[in-house]
């Protein structure tokens, strides 16, 4: 019995908890991508670097707060900085819309032109981030580190395997739930939110109904910037901030959005968790886990790991390909095929 409980605790500690946190971060990122896709109808390659830009704003403001002695008690100061960072990041994104995307919207350009333009924006954002904060790792987490430490858990339960939950993981999940609830409330209950859904559904009819496209687009960008900043900050708190990592997050984030069905917010969230759980389940080494469940004299040679963590990107990629092969509209139906 103890062995089974230990095995479960082991899984919870190394698979379940990290996957929930990582899945929440991917879900928030994918939501940003999917909302831009739903309204503006292109895949925004600059989203990863928008996350980096927003996170950089959070970090700079956090440092500034720290230098003034402002803190958030046991919680990271970054949470206090977040709203300000969202405002700054939104400003950047709105400027990028004004000087880049608006022109192509007026022209009714092909989606792939937007895609190339977003690559240009990606370069610029990436350049800004590296120029201001540099390409290196930045750690900006402060406050308490753990909600439950593995040692305490062991003491409380008497098991030999502990479960530790980091504050950053707890914050990630709580923030994700709050943000998603707010977003769905906004999209389903408010006039502006409904007009965004209408615009995404049928642009011409939305115009006929008197919906102001400029306002819809501006609100979309602000939401995308906010989601990017939140997702980026949470990821940075949980792991660490490095501009290039954020570019690499583009693949799992897009995979999550496509798996869920591009343009479908619910799908993006589901997709985020599908990708996160697959990535961690496939790259987890089951040696110790098997040790608990198998008979005493049975001993695994090797790590019993399906795939080395070096290839965690391959997991998103394979899932992406499978979805494109078998169900190109995603698990939930998206707007784009």
């Amino acid at each position: 019995m103890d062995n089974i409980l230990n095995a479960l605790a082991l899984m919870a500690n190394f698979v379940f908890v990290p996957a929930i946190a990582y899945g929440s971060q991917l879900a928030l990122g994918a939501l940003g991508v999917t909302i831009v896709f739903g309204i503006l109808r292109f895949s925004n390659f600059a989203h990863g670097d928008t996350m980096a830009l927003g996170t950089m704003c959070t970090i700079l403001i956090t440092w500034w707060f720290q230098s003034m002695g402002i803190s958030f008690g046991p919680l990271p100061t970054a949470l206090l900085a977040l709203p300000f960072a969202i405002v700054i990041c939104s400003a950047f994104v709105l400027v990028s819309d004004r000087v880049v995307y608006r022109f192509y919207r007026k022209q009714k350009a092909d989606p792939v032109i937007y895609l190339i333009a977003s690559v240009g924006v990606m370069f610029v954002f990436n350049g800004i981030v590296r120029f201001i904060i540099g390409p290196d790792d930045q750690n900006f987490a402060d406050g308490e580190r753990f909600i439950i430490k593995a040692r305490e858990f062991k003491r409380l339960t008497g098991l030999s395997e502990g479960i530790s939950i980091k504050v950053s993981q707890g914050i990630t999940v709580v923030t994700m739930i709050v943000v998603v609830a707010l977003l769905f409330w906004f999209l389903n209950k408010t006039r502006t939110g409904k007009s965004m859904r209408a615009y995404s559904d049928n642009e011409d009819l939305a115009l006929l109904s008197g919906i102001n496209p400029d306002k819809v687009v501006a609100v979309t960008w602000i939401i995308a910037a906010a989601l990017a900043t939140i997702a980026g900050t949470l990821y940075g708190l949980d792991k660490s901030f490095k501009p290039f990592t954020y570019f690499q997050l583009l693949l799992p984030i897009f995979a999550a959005a496509i798996v869920g069905g591009l343009g479908n917010p619910l799908g993006a969230i589901a997709g985020g968790f599908v990708i996160a759980f697959s990535e961690i389940l496939v790259t987890y080494a089951y040696k110790k886990f098997a040790g608990y469940l198998m008979p005493e004299d049975w001993k695994a040679d090797g790590l019993i790991q399906l795939l080395s963590t070096d290839y965690k990107f391959a997991v998103s990629f394979v899932i992406l390909l499978l979805v494109l092969l078998f169900r190109p509209t995603g698990i939930f139906k998206g707007t784009g095929v």
């Binding site: 209408a198 559904d201 049928n202 109904s209 919906i211």
Partner: peptide, 15 residues
Amino acid sequence: FPSMSVEENLEMGAF
């Protein structure tokens, strides 16, 4: 608006 409810469609008409 196909992914919106009938009521929401009418609301959008009165935007």
